[in-house]
Amino acid sequence: MADHSAPAAAAVPEVPVFWGYAAEFDSVTGVLHAAKECRDAGFTRWDVLTPFPVHGLNDAMGLRNTRLPWFVFGMGAIGFLTGNLMQWWMNAVDYRLIVSGKPFWSLPANIPVAFELTILFSALSAFFGMWVLNGLPRHYHPTLTSRRLKHATTDRFYVVVEAADPRFDRAKTREFLQSLGASHVEELED
């Protein structure tokens, strides 16, 4: 009865959905230990939130290195070629003008611009490539909704395990996280 007058979306009340746990740690040592345990426990959809890059955490989490450098290298090579081809085409082919008695196509004089374009292409690809690979900007995320997790950008460390993880069990995972020495386990909602 109630359905036919209002659009469907508005009718559904916003029910917060349980999304996962965030276990809070106060020290680098604590979170490093916890990360290793979570890695060994076989979780796949989990993460660690830290206010700064923690040395050794990538190994502790078992993360693979990123392929970003290869992308950047490729773009740099394209920038170098672009710089050279552009100058060759413009000054040696399309608009030939004698400048200070130099040949139309003067490689030594083209190096600076080719170099700058190499750097420009590489830097732009490093910058944007990093954000794209990280899936940012993304202004909504369950971990951003908790007031407590605001400490993740200041002074505390969080091991976040998503409910969507195949090994996730609402009771057991909470127990597991507490056993790692978490000072608090926060429930996150989506």
Partner: peptide
């Protein structure tokens, strides 16, 4: 390159 380019250019 700095040495070469400057000498080559000024000629």
């Amino acid at each position: 390159f700095s040495q070469f380019m400057l000498i080559w250019y000024a000629n």
